[in-house]
Design a protein around this nucleic acid. Structure first.
Lengths: 209, 209
DNA sequence: AACTTTTTGGGTTGCTCAACCCAAAAACTG
DNA sequence: CAGTTTTTGGGTTGAGCAACCCAAAAAGTT
């Protein structure tokens, strides 16, 4: 994977902060206006930096976008809900799904610049971005799979449950549900998708009932 | 909904054909390069029409895009697999899902310009398009729900099955699965998503095995 | 204090592309 | 054949925008 980040030899705390401010501004603008609807000039204004600052920290708009992608990919699939070690029983999984739903409701079913939206917008167009996105999804799937593995180790899930498939089902439900929910501005798609996925996972519970 | 189609007073068979050729070219180009990656000039060349033909049949690029959306929305969720009346038992549903999977495989997991991709690309940016897309999804959900209703009437599904939720779960699975599959260029996400959704629906079968 | 990094604010350049115009020729319709 | 519709092929215009340049001032570091 090409590195689009390392440009500046040294980067003081302040430099880091400015770079982050630019990145954060890009994330927020893209969330509400999409990649195409966001010009570097918009980002510059929103980040309150002047002139050539953006091109001081990023090689190109593409590099900035890719930095946005990896930032989102390194974040939690459901913002504010850390997964590591926490999702290890059915109740926790249910709570995680409910948090995703609640978050969308609070946002008025508006975009969040999650990987899913970015994938829709960029996937077809740019191969480099597509790979970054692919890696992001892979990472998220890994996180989910790890949680499911913890559940299986605890004896919640049957030993023969295919964790790869289950984690994929959950991830696609989250992404598909979010896509429809944001497009239709209606929380029901996401709710139905996650209900179905959880129920499917539950059908592999060790103790049925 | 604003009508973006009716511009020309009369439209002979030939005019219709040319308009269709433009629309079709737009569909194909957008499928492989996305909306942003496709200029009106590209469409013009691909449709083998000259000069101002595109603006003769469409008010603007936006109008053309919206026409693409509604064309896709009026098509079948899984191209080449008509649903009306055909999907009325579990086997038919399974065959439909398999067709979706097979199609993606044949395409090398590449984009198809289905509503899902368009939604990702346009949803955030443009309100009019978002509504067209929303209506498209709604139509597809209706088709699925109708099929499930047929299954319930036949006695395949329990009377208390929530058809609205089930159809949403299936549609989100198709969309989310397709999104991940196309981004990761791997058929497994779509397969896992549809497996999960079908299995979920099957858990509402009248005769549990 | 010497040095490095960051920031400012003002450029410019050159391309892409949507939108639109026109007048004449070709094709179709009744 | 007269009238309408379609098509051709050549424009132009103007906006938006990415990419890049620079030199001086401010801030930070050691």
């Amino acid at each position: 994977m090409t590195d689009t980040t390392a440009r500046i030899p040294k980067l003081t705390r302040k430099g880091q902060a400015t770079r982050d401010r630019i990145l954060q501004a890009a994330v927020e603008l893209i969330a509400e206006r999409g990649v195409v609807g966001t010009s570097t000039e918009d980002v510059r204004k929103a980040a309150r930096v002047s002139g050539s600052q953006i091109y001081h920290y990023f090689d190109s708009k593409q590099a900035l976008i890719r930095a946005v992608i990896t930032r989102q990919a390194d974040a939690e699939p459901v913002p504010g809900r850390p997964m590591m070690g926490a999702l290890d029983c059915f109740d926790a999984l249910r709570a995680w799904a409910d948090a995703a739903i609640q978050r969308q409701e609070e946002n008025g079913c508006r975009g969040e610049c999650s990987l899913g939206s970015l994938a829709g917008e960029l996937g077809a167009a740019d191969e480099d971005s597509r790979q970054d996105l692919s890696n992001g999804f892979l990472r998220w799937q890994g996180l989910l799979e790890q949680s499911l593995r913890a559940m299986r180790d605890r004896g919640d899930l049957r030993p023969d449950a295919d964790l790869g498939e289950l984690s994929l089902a959950l991830l696609t439900a989250l992404q598909g549900g979010t896509l429809l929910t944001q497009t239709m501005r209606d929380i029901r798609p996401l709710r139905a998708a996650l209900n179905a996925a959880l129920s499917y996972i539950h059908s592999f519970a060790a103790d049925q009932r």
